[in-house]
Design a binder for these strands. Structure first.
Lengths: 222, 222
DNA sequence: TGATTTGTCGAGCGATTTATAAAGGTGAGT
DNA sequence: ACTCACCTTTATAAATCGCTCGACAAATCA
């Protein structure tokens, strides 16, 4: 491995400090002065390397979502061959995505939070990444529906809840810590939580009850 | 009803504008100048009525959470007498809380988002309101566990997911709109979503499968 | 009507923000 | 030893931030 150049090194220090501060105080709530001070570098370097504060934001968010989608796609394609087990597919995806978010714990919360804002960047990122996420997840649940393993449950809502189960602990880690005394970023939580998801998946796939179907008539009207 | 004084009227206009802008750009991303301009009033009035920007924030968040907890408590106590139906209790609470959040749609997203930050105010509000929310919800699920209606599922995680189902559409309305083409703030969504929750509740309460129990050993250690 | 409280306004202060231009420094390759 | 590209700092521009002050208007009360 090639040794890191000096520039690359400070670049990463800026990123580390930025993630830390953005995670705590939000994007608008953090100044590049504070970032530079935290990283122990000069203020001007942020503009120099990332083209300003907004460039830094864009870089961080794209990086996270890029890795997120890549992780999802890998887990998706790995299980493509063994078509018999949908639950296994869902569990592998959940496992990988949770591990990924644990790896970049601070960045996760920050990006997820920032994605709830109404900005041009967010809309672009949604169109680029989250649409693909939805597409892949929907495919799995539609396959399950096709095999009659689930019945009469709006697939949209299932996808939404499945995704939310994966993301929520990393969007609200402080809530989970302070109110439930759980640590979303440790291995114990991951194992417990995965079992919980596994249970959920089991329930969903075996549900042959009388839940009234509606594929949400106008859901596709747009 | 007493006619509103002039001061009260502009006060509400400031609040309306503040909620709108906070919702879009976040707290730190919104200046009191922008709020005053949006409301068509002078900048000084924000400090005059709310004691500064932070006072406005505190007022908005407390107001929302106050109403949220009050709604929860009312729904909780209304169903206290008919002890036989836990599912009904859960559904009534979900119904009321979703309706409440739809009523103050913009404020909901803003408060939920702001609650993911690491500030003194957030910690205080968590201790004051969200602990009580957890306490009440936990009581219901523990009662269900006691009656053996649910078995071997960590109550903590159930409470978390139940709460999250209620809140998520209002924390991520834009995601739901842009990716799933659903409108979290209309009546149709509410009905569909409540049926979905009803199905979830049904699954939970009827689950007598082999999910391994663990009340999360260290979960209460703090 | 005169006095008092309440509401509103424009002006501006002091601090902080991002961004950039210019200059100094460093180090690997020739 | 020299160059040149990359890295870093200093200095500063220009805008915006939250907030306060005193003057003025309007409503309320005596």
């Amino acid at each position: 491995m090639v040794q890191k150049s000096k520039g690359q090194q400070t670049k990463e220090e800026v990123i580390t400090s930025a993630v830390k501060l953005f995670n705590m105080n939000g994007y608008s709530g953090t100044s590049i002065r504070a970032i530079a001070k935290e990283a122990g570098v000069n203020i001007a370097l942020v503009s120099y390397y990332f083209g300003g504060k907004s460039g830094l934001l864009e870089h961080l968010m794209s990086t996270f979502l890029e890795g997120y989608i890549q992780t999802l796609e890998e887990a998706f394609q790995e299980t493509d061959l063994e078509k018999e087990k949908i639950s296994g597919r869902l569990m592998k995806i959940a496992d990988r995505l949770i591990a990924y978010q644990q790896d970049c714990f601070y960045l996760s919360r920050f990006v997820h939070r920032e994605m709830t804002l109404d900005t041009v960047l967010v809309r672009e990122l949604m169109a680029t990444y989250l649409m693909k996420e939805k597409y892949l997840l929907e495919k799995i649940f539609l396959e399950a529906a096709k095999r009659r393993q689930i019945r009469k449950i709006p697939v949209d809502l299932l996808v939404m809840q499945y995704r939310d189960m994966i993301i929520m602990p990393f969007l609200q880690p402080q809530y989970i810590r302070k109110v439930f005394f759980l640590q979303p970023n440790d291995g114990y939580f991951r194992r417990s939580y995965l079992k919980f998801i596994e249970h959920w998946v089991g329930q969903i796939l075996k549900s042959h009850d009388h839940y009234r179907v509606n594929v949400l008539p106008h859901a596709r009207a747009y």
